[in-house]
Simulated assay, not measured.
Amino acid sequence: MKKYPLSEEKIHALLTTEPVARLASAGADGFPYITPVHFVFMADKIFIHGLAAGEKLANIKRDSRVGFEVERMIGLVHDAHDPCGTNTAYESVIIRGHATMLADTAAKIAVLDAFVRKYAPQHKGGAYPDAMLKLTGIIELSIQSCTGKYYPV
């Protein structure tokens, strides 16, 4: 059992507010492939957008199992007398799940609207050109397991 588990409310808050996470997939050579991603959390799923082609998408098509990690560093915790007592105060979430590509245009637009609300709210209500929608890939991560923990200040 984790010493400092995050509550479900804190997990959802972290998944809603943090701007960058890391997605891990299995590379063709068997090595993990980890990439930083922008994401949104909605309907108890993680959505990631990017180009409709690339290594992470090829990996997901080959093996849908992925890892996802997000953290917030709160600060360093220093021991006044012991340099080995220095630690990091943080919150983190680790997710395991299965990733698929969204194909439905209406679903893609709903996810892109969520990205706009999170990252560029000044563009809310804008239209997405058809050419851009075709070049945009949306990864849907269905969560199989989710854990969160923190280290206090």
Rank of each mutant, 00 (worst) to 15 (best):
T88H: 06
T88G: 12
L23W: 00
K108V: 01
I109N: 02
A127G: 06
Y128H: 13
A24K: 05
I46A: 06
L76A: 10
A89P: 00
K61P: 07
G30P: 04
T17M: 15
A58Q: 14
Y151N: 15
P19K: 14
I48N: 01
A13T: 13
L51C: 12
S145V: 15
T136L: 01
K56M: 06
Y4C: 03
M1T: 15
K61T: 14
S92I: 01
N87W: 10
A80P: 08
S142E: 14
E18R: 11
K134Y: 08
R62K: 13
L133S: 04
L14N: 01
V116K: 04
I138P: 00
S145T: 12
G85N: 04
K108M: 03
A127Y: 06
K56F: 01
T136Q: 00
L14H: 02
V70A: 04
F68I: 02
P5K: 11
L133E: 00
T35C: 09
L76T: 13
Y128D: 03
L76K: 09
H81S: 13
A103L: 12
S25A: 15
Q122H: 14
F31Q: 12
A28T: 10
I138K: 01
V40D: 01
T136F: 01
V70K: 02
V37F: 05
T86I: 13
A106Y: 07
D44G: 09
A107L: 13
A21W: 00
G27I: 03
L6G: 00
V70C: 04
G126K: 11
F115D: 03
K149F: 08
V77C: 03
I94F: 10
G30M: 06
K3L: 13
Y151I: 10
T86C: 15
D79N: 11
L51M: 13
V111S: 01
T88M: 14
R96I: 14
Q122L: 12
A110M: 05
T105D: 11
F115L: 04
A103P: 01
D79F: 08
Y119N: 08
R72V: 09
D29H: 09
A24N: 08
H38I: 10
A13I: 07
K134D: 11
E8W: 05
G30R: 08
E55W: 08
A99E: 03
A120W: 08
K56S: 02
P129G: 12
I138W: 01
L112D: 02
M132K: 12
I60H: 08
H98Q: 14
G54E: 08
K10P: 03
T16P: 06
K108W: 04
A80Q: 11
D113F: 05
G27C: 06
T100G: 15
A120P: 08
I46L: 09
V93I: 05
G148W: 00
D79R: 07
G85Q: 05
G54C: 04
K118Q: 06
R62P: 02
A58I: 07
N59P: 06
E69K: 00
I138E: 01
L133W: 03
L14F: 04
L112H: 05
G126L: 14
S64K: 07
M73C: 15
A24Q: 09
K45L: 12
H38W: 11
F68P: 00
V153W: 14
S7G: 07
G85C: 03
F68N: 02
K118H: 11
